[in-house]
């Protein structure tokens, strides 16, 4: 108990309104998930920014290694044909 008195960090994700994804907005310190939701509500939804909150312990997020970004992301750079921009869209199709 006395060894680690600091609250762990939680990452906060907020859904702005129905139909949208939860987006990362920041982080808070909290003793547990319930407190993290309360802190997130108090810090990040003061101006009606959201209708739903997700909290995740920061240590539980596994991130890609920046040192590997060449290997992970470079190969996509010269493969423009993966973008669906080479199709002629018929006039009749209104919403695509």
């Amino acid at each position: 108990m006395s060894e680690n008195r600091d609250w762990p960090l939680y990452e906060i994700f907020i859904r702005a309104r129905g139909g949208l994804d939860h987006k990362h907005v920041g982080s808070v310190h909290a003793a547990d998930a319930r407190m993290a939701i309360e802190h997130a509500r108090d810090l990040y939804t003061r101006r009606q920014e959201g209708i739903s909150v997700w909290v995740v312990r920061s240590v539980d997020i596994v991130a890609s290694d920046p040192a590997e970004s060449d290997a992970l992301f470079e190969p996509a750079r010269d493969k423009v044909y993966r973008h669906p921009t080479f199709y002629d869209i018929p006039k009749e199709v209104e919403t695509l």
Partner: peptide, 11 residues
Amino acid sequence: PAIEEDLGLAN
């Protein structure tokens, strides 16, 4: 005790 509680009490 923490900045998060500062905001909570102020709210």
